[in-house]
């Protein structure tokens, strides 16, 4: 394309796309500010933030998010590493398994989870703590497609096998290789997987509802059904949180060693 003669269509499509995205968002924002009749106010936000149920469920889900994302990283990084190293032929199969949570409706999955693990010998629904174990396991599975994909993309961007062999020939053992070579080169991949998985946990509504735990997602549904202005305020808060997280990825991605990570190949 020549400079100076910018095409009408090259403006049209981005503007159309942005309109499609921002108009509803603006509508929600505007609505969330009109709880007090006739004036713009933050009353809806104040109400939401003052609601003890909001605070309780938000805290609960943040803790559950941190726990399940941590476990998920500990589970998936070594697993995917091992697949790349020892059974690369199994990768397509594992990829299909990893997207099962997209294929099986969440409600079916949660129902099966409860049917199986509330009975002997597991009896995982008897106490809140045991139920939380089940919650975390459920979250790990529901966020598996994102976590697996992010780590998989990261592994693919480096030559895992040769880097591992280079480390071995220099005398390093498995743990040293994993922690000083593989994980540092996957930092951004792990981080983006973790943030998406965390967002999934925060927004997930069926698991908490069925297992009767105070999850944030279930709270969102409840508020959405019974109130008018507060759900709008909550949506805006969620958007803000999401963008803060995306911003965090950008900031981490600009760190000095990640710069070499991006330039590192070739």
């Amino acid at each position: 394309m020549r400079k100076g003669k910018l095409n009408f269509w090259s403006f049209f499509w981005p503007i159309l796309a942005m309109t499609y995205f921002f108009v509803p968002l603006y509508g929600t924002l505007d609505f969330s500010l009109r709880m007090k009749k006739g004036v713009i106010s933050l009353l809806a936000y104040q109400t939401v933030l003052a609601d003890p149920q909001f605070i309780e469920s938000f805290q609960y889900s943040v803790v559950m998010g941190i726990v399940s994302v941590t476990l998920s990283i500990l589970l998936f990084v070594p697993t995917v590493y091992w697949i790349y190293l020892k059974v690369p032929k199994a990768r397509p199969f594992v990829e299909i398994v990893s997207i099962l949570p997209f294929i099986i409706p969440t409600i079916v999955f949660v129902f099966g989870l409860i049917r199986t693990f509330s009975r002997p010998p597991f009896l995982l629904t008897l106490t809140p703590f045991k139920t939380d174990i089940l919650m975390a396991a459920g979250y790990i599975i529901l966020s598996m497609p994102y976590m697996f994909r992010a780590i998989d993309v990261g592994m693919r961007s480096i030559d895992v096998k040769t880097l591992t062999e280079a480390g071995q020939s220099l005398g390093a053992n498995w743990l040293q290789i994993l922690f000083t070579i593989i994980i540092p080169n996957l930092r951004i991949a792990i981080l983006s997987g973790a943030l998406i998985a965390f967002a999934t946990v925060l927004g997930e509504m069926i698991l908490g509802d069925f297992l009767v735990r105070p999850a944030f997602g279930a709270y969102l549904v409840l508020v959405g059904r019974s109130k008018a202005y507060e759900p709008a305020a909550l949506s805006i808060i969620s958007y803000a949180l999401t963008w803060i997280m995306l911003g965090a990825i950008q900031v981490f991605a600009k760190g000095s060693s990640s710069q070499s990570q991006l330039l590192g190949r070739g």
Binding site: I158, L163, S169, L170, G171, N173, N185, S260
Partner: peptide, 20 residues
Amino acid sequence: LPPNKRNIGMVFQSYALFPN
């Protein structure tokens, strides 16, 4: 013997430097 116990140096076609 596993490779990390042999004290044998290796240079690969693809360099295999640690990018980080």
